[in-house]
């Protein structure tokens, strides 16, 4: 380790390279083992979020869907902080939308929803159901 590296590490700016190696390996092996390329994973992530958002309002910034491995078992781990459940009418509408195969319009709605976070739930009947 050079003096520069040492100073960087002392200042907490750089992780030791052994730690980086482990983190990088864990990520690449999760993909190797599952045979999912990053593109497919991203597509799956979007679709999962879409479905979940029909039922609960989730924090898109914090939400995370990733592959993790432990003991050679790869798991799909979704960590989706729930802001609140959707009010009942919206749920019914969402279910109906699925029934009529209108799933796409469930997608843009949550992004609008994410903004008026401060308002109380009662005020907000269903941005998802008008269309």
């Amino acid at each position: 380790m050079t003096l520069f590296d040492f100073l960087q590490r002392l200042l907490g700016r750089q992780k030791p390279s052994g730690t980086m190696a482990k983190e990088r390996l864990q990520l690449v092996l999760a993909h190797d083992r599952s045979d999912l390329n990053p593109e497919l994973l991203e597509q799956m992530r979007r679709e999962i979020l879409e479905v979940v958002q029909r039922y609960v309002e989730i924090d898109l910034e914090e939400g995370d869907v990733s592959l993790e491995t432990e003991d050679r078992v790869t798991a799909l781990v979704a960590n989706l902080p729930i802001k609140r459940a959707r009010p009942l009418p919206a749920l019914v509408a969402a279910a109906a939308a699925v029934g009529v195969a209108q799933a796409p319009d469930a997608e843009p709605a949550p992004q609008e929803l994410a903004v008026p976070l401060a308002s109380e739930p009662a005020e907000e009947p269903s941005p998802a159901d008008p269309d």
Binding site: P16, S17, G18, T19, A21, K22, L25, Q26, L29
Partner: peptide, 15 residues
């Protein structure tokens, strides 16, 4: 000095 994967790191990863 943690500039190399440790023994436990490798056995954890490869199980």
């Amino acid at each position: 000095s943690q500039e190399m994967l440790g023994v436990d790191d490798v056995t954890d990863i490869l199980a």
